[in-house]
């Protein structure tokens, strides 16, 4: 069965970010059980059905240092979905429809 690719929201992260990007990915994994990663060599696509949550606290936990959501600007090359919430603690990308 083919999965409806249109249901995914997500982001493309620049792998130049090294440990920061790895920590972002781990933080996303922790909060989004159905997350999928697709590797494109210089960047990595992180996608999740319908909704994706990223929390600063989680990133700090995996990174082992203080981290601000502003640092995401440097490494988030692209995203898909609507950015529903973005403040100093978290980011939510989602579609507005049910299915």
């Amino acid at each position: 069965m083919t999965v409806d690719q249109g249901q995914y929201v997500g982001m493309d992260l620049d792998k130049n970010g090294g440990p920061v990007v790895e920590a972002i990915i781990e933080a996303i994994r922790a909060d989004n059980p159905e997350v999928e990663l697709v590797d494109f060599n210089i960047y990595v696509k992180v996608k999740s059905p319908w909704k994706l949550l990223l929390r600063r606290e989680k990133v700090e936990e995996y990174l082992g240092r203080e981290w601000t959501m502003d640092e995401l600007h440097v490494f988030m090359s692209s995203y898909f979905g609507f950015i529903d919430e973005w403040d100093e603690d978290h980011l939510v990308i989602r579609w507005n429809r049910e299915s």
């Binding site: 982001m11 493309d12 210089i42 960047y43 600007h73 988030m76 090359s77 692209s78």
Partner: peptide
């Protein structure tokens, strides 16, 4: 920017790969 930057990296044009990625980081 993403596929072209990926191509740049694949052929070893590190500068253009960086142009592509750095530009694209504003595109979000």
């Amino acid at each position: 920017f993403l596929p072209f930057a990926a191509s740049a990296a694949a052929v070893g044009d590190e500068h253009f790969a960086s142009v592509g990625k750095s530009v694209q980081s504003d595109e979000a």
